[in-house]
Lab assay of single mutants.
Amino acid sequence: MQIFVKTLTGKTITSEVEPSDTIENVKAKIQDKEGIPPDQQRLIFAGKQLEDGRTLSDYNIQKESTLHLVLR
C-alpha cells in the first residue's frame, strides 16, 4: 500500500509499505529516498509519535495515510 510522509519543508515523500511493516522499516525506506538517518527521524501520526518496534497496523495506519516527519 502507499503512504505519504510529509516533511517540515512541505515536501511529500510517497512510500510503498505493508501494514505489517515496522516503523523502523518505514524509517529505513525514508533513509533510502532522502538520506536521512533513522535515528534523526521522528514520525508522527494523528498527533502521536510512532515507536520503532510497532507496526503500521498497530497504529491503524491505512493506505494513503499521511505521516509527518520531524527531524531531531
Rank of each mutant, 00 (worst) to 15 (best):
V70A: 08
Q62R: 10
R54N: 09
L71H: 08
L50E: 02
L71M: 09
A28R: 15
K11W: 11
K11A: 08
E24C: 07
R72H: 11
K33A: 13
G47C: 06
E34Y: 14
I13N: 02
Q40R: 11
T55R: 10
H68K: 07
P38T: 15
A28K: 15
L67K: 00
L8D: 13
I44P: 01
G53Y: 11
Q41W: 11
T66I: 13
G47N: 06
S20Y: 11
I23H: 01
N25Q: 14
N60S: 08
E34N: 09
G10Y: 03
T7H: 06
G53D: 11
D39R: 10
L56G: 01
Q2S: 10
L50T: 02
S20N: 11
T66F: 07
V26R: 01
R72E: 12
G47E: 05
V70S: 07
I61A: 02
P19M: 09
K48I: 14
S15Q: 15
K48D: 06
N25F: 11
T9D: 13
S65H: 07
P38I: 15
I23R: 01
A46V: 06
H68P: 00
I61M: 03
V70Q: 09
I13C: 04
L43M: 04
I36T: 07
Q62P: 09
I36P: 06
F4V: 06
L67G: 01
L8A: 14
A46D: 13
R42K: 13
I61D: 01
D32M: 13
D52K: 04
F4C: 04
G35W: 03
L71Y: 10
E24Y: 15
D32Y: 11
T12N: 05
V5C: 03
T7L: 15
G47H: 06
D32H: 11
D21L: 05
S15L: 15
I30C: 02
I3W: 00
Q40M: 12
D21Y: 08
L56A: 02
N25S: 15
S20R: 08
N25R: 13
I3F: 01
Q40A: 10
S65W: 04
S65Y: 08
I13W: 12
D21H: 05
L69N: 01
T12V: 14
K63S: 15
R54W: 10
E64G: 15
D52T: 05
H68E: 10
S20I: 06
Q31W: 15
L8I: 12
E51R: 08
I61V: 09
E64K: 08
L8K: 11
I13T: 03
E64N: 15
T66E: 07
T55V: 06
V26L: 14
L69D: 00
E64Y: 14
K63T: 13
Q31T: 09
K29L: 11
L69T: 02
N25W: 10
Q62D: 09
P19N: 06
L69K: 00
K29F: 11
V17S: 03
E18A: 12
Q49S: 10
L43A: 00
F4R: 06
L67Y: 00
Q31I: 05
S57I: 08
Q2N: 11
F45A: 02
R42G: 08
E24D: 07
I23S: 02
I30D: 01
P19W: 08
E16Q: 12
A28V: 11
D39E: 12
A46C: 09
S15T: 15
N25L: 11
N25T: 14
K6W: 06
E34Q: 06
L43Y: 04
D58R: 01
G53P: 06
G47L: 03
A46F: 09
R54K: 13
E16H: 11
R72W: 13
K29W: 13
K27A: 03
P37F: 06
R42F: 14
K33V: 12
S15I: 15
T12L: 13
N60Q: 09
R54T: 05
G47W: 05
L43V: 03
L50C: 02
I44Y: 15
D21T: 10
R72G: 09
I23C: 03
E16I: 14
A46N: 15
D39V: 08
L71V: 12
I30L: 08
D32C: 08
D21A: 06
S65V: 06
S15V: 15
A28E: 09
T14V: 14
D21N: 07
K63Q: 12
D58K: 02
T66L: 10
G53R: 09
V5I: 15
V70E: 11
T22E: 02
P19Q: 06
I36D: 03
P38E: 09
R42V: 15
T12Q: 06
D32P: 03
K63W: 09
E64M: 11
E18C: 11
T7C: 12
E24P: 01
Q62E: 11
S20L: 09
H68F: 14
G53K: 11
T9L: 10
Q41T: 10
K6A: 07
Q62Y: 10
K6P: 01
P19T: 07
L56D: 00
L50M: 08
D52G: 05
L71K: 06
K11H: 12
Q41K: 03
I36N: 03
G47P: 00
Q41L: 12
N25Y: 11
A46K: 14
D39M: 09
A28L: 15
T55C: 04
L56Y: 01
N60A: 07
E16W: 15
K63A: 15
D39N: 11
L8W: 15
I23W: 01
T22A: 04
S20T: 13
F45L: 05
K33C: 07
Q49P: 10
L69R: 00
E64Q: 10
E51W: 06
Q41M: 15
S57P: 02
N60P: 02
L69Y: 01
Q41S: 06
E16F: 13
S20P: 03
R54S: 08
I44S: 09
G47M: 04
L67S: 00
G53T: 10
L69P: 00
K63C: 07
I23M: 03
E51Y: 06
Y59Q: 04
E51K: 09
R72T: 12
T55D: 02
Q31A: 14
I23A: 02
K29G: 07
R42C: 14
Q49I: 15
S20G: 11
I23K: 00
I30W: 02
T14Q: 08
